[in-house]
């Protein structure tokens, strides 16, 4: 016997339907909560910058005073005298070099792992992620001896170690990118007459470009912000911005210099992050404003 449900009557009661769809709808008070959380987060990130900004333009700031007691740019002048500009340049170069080496390596490893052409893929993944689990200090102490014995120049040794430290980030980021990447695009391009090189340049790289940009950004940060490896392996021969910050922060009464150097250290990552937000997004989306003579409803094939 068929179920007797009159036409027009819904099997699911309306209120239950809306409740289930309400999963997608903000809860009452949800908006206020979101705003509150966002505000707290913004304060958490921004507050440390406030004393930093003040210290950078303070010649003197005695303890109980709420604001600097003497304004000025002595900190900036001293920082520049102590070689902040070349250190900034060396850090920049180091970060770029790490990104330039670790990004393609990470991409190659990720592509091989995603395509399943690697023997023992779990072991290889674990090894590639190992530098994250291993305290940098432990690895560096052992490797310093090895690299010194092998007479590897200090700067090159620092670079090699930082590339290894950056690999987990680039591999992971590129695995995410390749998981979403469709090899069929490349096959299609091949059948259309594109050589392997043309496929790489015209299809493969443009498609994974956002992932590459993210991976390169993370690798840059590893090189840009490293302290331990540069100190222990570089042995002071490679003076980067973090080294300068570290040495001044260890002393007393250098707050203004440390503040200036720290602010300088924020700039390149910030610029890159903004560039990533601007250029790192995927392809033009359908903002086409003209008439779209779509003959099938939106979302259907």
């Amino acid at each position: 016997m068929a179920m007797m449900i009159p036409y027009g009557q819904r099997i699911t009661p309306d209120d239950r339907t809306t409740t289930s769809r309400g999963l997608m709808r903000p809860r009452p008070g949800g908006r206020a909560l979101r705003v509150a959380v966002a505000t707290v987060l913004a304060l958490w990130f921004a507050l440390p910058l406030v004393p930093l900004l003040l210290w950078a333009v303070a010649n003197r700031w005695s303890f109980p005073a709420p604001l600097p007691t003497a304004w000025g740019v002595d900190g900036l002048v001293t920082a520049l005298e102590q070689g902040a500009a070349p250190a900034f340049g060396r850090s920049l170069l180091l970060g770029l070099a790490v990104a330039a080496i670790a990004t393609p390596l990470g991409a190659l490893a990720a592509r091989a792992l995603t395509r399943g052409i690697v023997p023992a893929p779990r072991l290889v993944s674990a090894l590639l992620l190992a530098p994250l689990a291993l305290p940098a200090f432990v690895a560096v102490m052992g490797l310093t001896v090895l690299l010194l014995r092998a007479r590897v120049p200090a700067t090159l040794a620092v670079l090699l170690l930082l590339v290894a430290a950056a690999l987990p980030y680039t591999v992971y980021t590129m695995r995410v990118a390749y998981a979403a990447h469709d090899l069929a695009y490349e096959e299609e391009a091949r059948t259309l007459g594109a050589s392997r090189l043309a496929v790489l340049v015209r299809v493969h790289l443009p498609l994974v470009a956002p992932g590459l940009a993210r991976a390169a950004f993370l690798a840059f940060l590893v090189g840009w912000s490293d302290y331990v490896v540069t100190v222990l392996v570089g042995g002071g021969s490679l003076v980067t911005l973090p080294l300068l910050v570290g040495s001044y922060a260890a002393g007393v009464g250098n707050e203004a210099i440390v503040a200036v150097l720290s602010l300088g250290a924020i700039v390149p990552p910030l610029v890159l992050l903004l560039a990533l937000g601007r250029f790192g997004r995927r392809y033009p989306t359908a903002r086409f404003t003209g008439p779209t003579p779509s003959r099938s409803p939106k979302g259907s094939p």
Partner: peptide, 20 residues
């Protein structure tokens, strides 16, 4: 002969239009 030298174009079930 490599796929690109065979002179055969393929249309798949998915359109696979290059998004960039």
């Amino acid at each position: 002969l490599a796929p690109e030298r065979r002179g055969m174009a393929m249309v798949f079930q998915r359109p696979l239009l290059f998004p960039h």
